[in-house]
C-alpha cells in the first residue's frame, strides 16, 4: 500500500469511529462527544497501525497497552474495539445501560479490550508507569500509550507520575496530550490556564513532540519518533478540536458531555456522510 493509500485508510477508519460515536450517542442521551471526536484520528492511528495488537488475542502479554487516562472519552475506544471485533457491534446501542457491557468509564472488569480502570482523572500515567515497569522486569518489548486530556493536566498526580517516569528512564511509554482547549465548564485557559504545556513536560525530563492531532501523517510520524527515543520518555502534544467533525459541537463546551437532539443527530450523520463523499472510494 502506498503511503497516500494508507493515510486514506486511516482517515476512513477515523470517520467510521465518528459514525460509531453517533450511534452510541443516539438521541436524548448524555455522552462525551467532544473529547471523543477530538481523538478519532489518534485512536485510529494507534489501534490500526502503530500498536502491536492482535484483536484475535487481546490478552497477549506482548501486546502494546492503550490507556485512556481521560476515561470519560471511552466512547472513541469502544468504537475502535468494535471495529477490531474485540467488542460485539450490538453493544454500541447498549452503551451505559444495565443491559450492556460498555460502562460510562473504562472498566476492565466489564469490557474486553479495556486495560485498566480509569476516569477518576490523573491516574492513567501512573498505571501506565506500573505496566511499563512490570513489562520491563519481564523483558517484554511492549509499549504503553497513555492518552491524557489538557484539562486533566490540572491533576497533581499527572506530574508526580511525570517525574517518576522520567526518573526511571522509561522509554517504553508514550504520553499523548489531547490539547483540545475545552474542558467541562469552558475553555481551559478560562477555567485554569495551563500555559507552556510542552515546556512543562520538557522541564520534567520528557521529549515533547507538538503536532496537529487530526493530521494522520503527523500522528504516525510522531508515534514512530516517540517509540524510537531511548533513555527517556516522550509525550506527543496533539493540537486538536473538541467536537471535531460536527460543526455544532466544535469548540463547544456544551458537548463535553452533551445530548444530541433529533435534529443534531441527523445533522451529525449528514456531515459525516459529506466527509465520506469527500474521501472518495
Amino acid at each position: 500500500m502506498t503511503e497516500a493509500a494508507n493515510v486514506k485508510r486511516l482517515e476512513r477508519l477515523a470517520l467510521q469511529l465518528r459514525f460509531d460515536l453517533i450511534e452510541m450517542m443516539g438521541v436524548g442521551k448524555a455522552g462525551h462527544l467532544g473529547g471523543s471526536s477530538s481523538l478519532a484520528e489518534i485512536v485510529a492511528c494507534l489501534y490500526f497501525q502503530a500498536m502491536r495488537y492482535d484483536p484475535r488475542n487481546p490478552k497477549d502479554p506482548d501486546r502494546d497497552r492503550f490507556l485512556l487516562s481521560k476515561g470519560h472519552c471511552v466512547l472513541i475506544q469502544y468504537a475502535a474495539l468494535v471495529e477490531l471485533g474485540v467488542v460485539p457491534r450490538d453493544e454500541l446501542k447498549k452503551v451505559k445501560t444495565l443491559q450492556g457491557h460498555l460502562q460510562g468509564h473504562p472498566d476492565c472488569d466489564h469490557t474486553p479490550g479495556i486495560e485498566a480502570v480509569t476516569g477518576s482523572l490523573g491516574m492513567g500515567l501512573s498505571i501506565g508507569l506500573g505496566m511499563a515497569l512490570g513489562l520491563r522486569l519481564d523483558r517484554r518489548s511492549s509499549h504503553v500509550y497513555v492518552i491524557m486530556g489538557d484539562g486533566e493536566l490540572s491533576e497533581g498526580q499527572i506530574w508526580e507520575a511525570a517525574m517518576a517516569v522520567a526518573a526511571y528512564k522509561v522509554d517504553t511509554l508514550t504520553g499523548i496530550v489531547d490539547l483540545n482547549h475545552v474542558q467541562a465548564t469552558g475553555p481551559t485557559r478560562e477555567v485554569l490556564d495551563i500555559p507552556d504545556i510542552a515546556r512543562k513536560w520538557e522541564a520534567f525530563g520528557w521529549e515533547a513532540l507538538s503536532i496537529d492531532g487530526h493530521d494522520i501523517v503527523q500522528i504516525l510520524d510522531a508515534l514512530d519518533r516517540a517509540r524510537r527515543i531511548k533513555g527517556r520518555p516522550a509525550v506527543i502534544i496533539a493540537e486538536t478540536v473538541k467536537g471535531k467533525g460536527f460543526s455544532f459541537a466544535e469548540n463547544n463546551a456544551a458537548f463535553h458531555n452533551g445530548i444530541l437532539t433529533d435534529e443534531q443527530h441527523r445533522q451529525a450523520l449528514s456531515e459525516l456522510e459529506a466527509r465520506r463523499a469527500g474521501l472518495g472510494d
Binding site: 490523573g122 501512573s126 498505571i127 506500573g130 515497569l133 512490570g134 522486569l137 498526580q157 517525574m163
Partner: peptide, 28 residues
C-alpha cells in the same frame, strides 16, 4: 534493588503505579 521502586513522597502515584504492576502479574 531491581524489584524495589522508590517512588518518592508521592503516595497517589505509588498506589496507581502498583495497579499497573499488578496488571502485568506482579504482586506489589
Amino acid at each position: 534493588p531491581e524489584r524495589y521502586f522508590q517512588m518518592g513522597i508521592a503516595e497517589q502515584n505509588m498506589a496507581a503505579t502498583a495497579a499497573g504492576l499488578a496488571f502485568t502479574g506482579k504482586i506489589p
